[in-house]
């Protein structure tokens, strides 16, 4: 057990060091951009993972929450001249509250009912972005979103204009999120969610209010996506309905499934892996999706905990092998 923990700690430290050093390693700016997109996708995949991986309810509305966070924060910055630091949490809050509103009637429904409701909701949100032109400017989108305001720390002032600066901002947010996410998953909340996925009737009899925990997971997952939306808006400076489609929800799903549902490292691995492929294999776009589709089927069938689950199994086997030797 001890050795395993040490190995895990080592991997985490190396991963963090690499993530911090990445923009300084002399890659082209294009790769820093892919780095930022990977970080954003990690946040989105973590959000979905809370609902699907832990609570066992598949949501296809994650891109809609991503969009709500982006639009709410962008509109607050553009129209009311709010600071990013105020608008971003509000964007997250808005997405979370909308999810609670949607979750109340639909989350007591089983499997396909909930999936279809989230899919329909996602479509409605996209139609609103597209057709409410007086506010969202419809298909033209919202240009000229300001970057996050500089922060003065007395001796140094942090700005968030460049790619590298945004990279560090989003990495910082991600690390804080990961600590809280770890706490959540390893607390009684995480246990309750996994119990619900296993057997919700037995879970109720344990004194656990199933609907409350489902809505909590859905709401927190949506708020996380909303926060990501605000970070995205502050980075790209332009948003339009094209980004927040069901296709994006499915991308997020692919990342989570291939990386590994119901684990923390899974969404991280999956998001980096798929984002890299998405960006570098644009030429083969058609073939890429054929492969992803098939891959998703095979992974869910033969390794339901994805790459992360496979790595864990491997390291356990290596450890067992060592013991015998």
């Amino acid at each position: 057990m001890k050795q395993w923990m040490n190995l895990k700690t080592l991997v985490i430290i190396v991963a963090i060091l690499f993530a911090v050093a990445f923009p300084q390693m002399g890659f082209k700016m294009y790769y820093v951009h892919i780095g930022v997109l990977s970080l954003l996708h990690i946040l989105l995949a973590l959000g979905l993972n809370l609902v699907a991986g832990y609570a066992g309810q598949l949501s296809l509305a994650q891109a809609a929450f991503f969009g709500i966070g982006a639009y709410v924060s962008a509109l607050l910055m553009l129209n009311l001249k709010w600071s990013f630091w105020l608008a971003a949490p509000l964007g997250a809050l808005a997405a979370g509250l909308v999810a609670v509103g949607i979750g109340l009637p639909t989350l007591r429904l089983k499997g396909p009912y909930f999936v279809i409701s989230t899919m329909g909701f996602g479509e409605i949100v996209r139609l609103v972005f597209l057709n409410w032109e007086s506010v969202t400017r419809g298909p033209n989108g919202l240009p000229g979103i300001p970057a996050p305001d500089p922060i003065s720390l007395g001796f140094v002032t942090l700005t968030f204009e460049s790619r590298v600066e945004n990279y560090y901002l989003i990495l910082t947010v991600l690390l804080v999120v990961l600590v809280l996410y770890y706490n959540l998953v390893h607390s009684r909340i995480g246990r309750a969610l996994r119990a619900i996925r296993n057997d919700y009737i037995a879970t109720q009899v344990m004194g656990i209010h199933v609907a409350f925990y489902r809505i909590l997971a859905f709401g927190v997952g949506a708020a996380l996506s909303g926060l990501t939306g605000a970070l995205y808006a502050g980075y790209i400076r332009f948003i339009s309905p094209d980004t927040f489609t069901i296709g994006e929800s499915i991308n997020i799903l692919i990342m989570m499934v291939i990386g590994g549902m119901g684990t923390i490292s899974g969404p991280i691995i999956g998001a980096i892996f798929i984002t890299y492929l998405l960006e570098t294999m644009r030429v083969f776009a058609e073939y890429r999706l054929v492969i992803y589709g098939l891959l998703m089927f095979l992974v869910i069938l033969y390794m339901p905990h994805g790459i992360a689950g496979m790595l864990k199994k491997l390291s356990l086997r290596v450890r067992a092998g060592k013991k015998e030797a």
Binding site: S187, R188, N198, D199, A202, G207, I208
Partner: peptide, 27 residues
């Protein structure tokens, strides 16, 4: 039982209703 959880985790879930912390304490 919660088949995919360990014996210990099954017991912890059974204990759930007697734990007094709230959501913020957990996060």
């Amino acid at each position: 039982l919660f088949g995919d959880m360990t014996v210990w985790e099954n017991l912890l879930v059974g204990r759930h209703s007697r734990l007094k912390q709230n959501v913020f304490d957990d996060i």
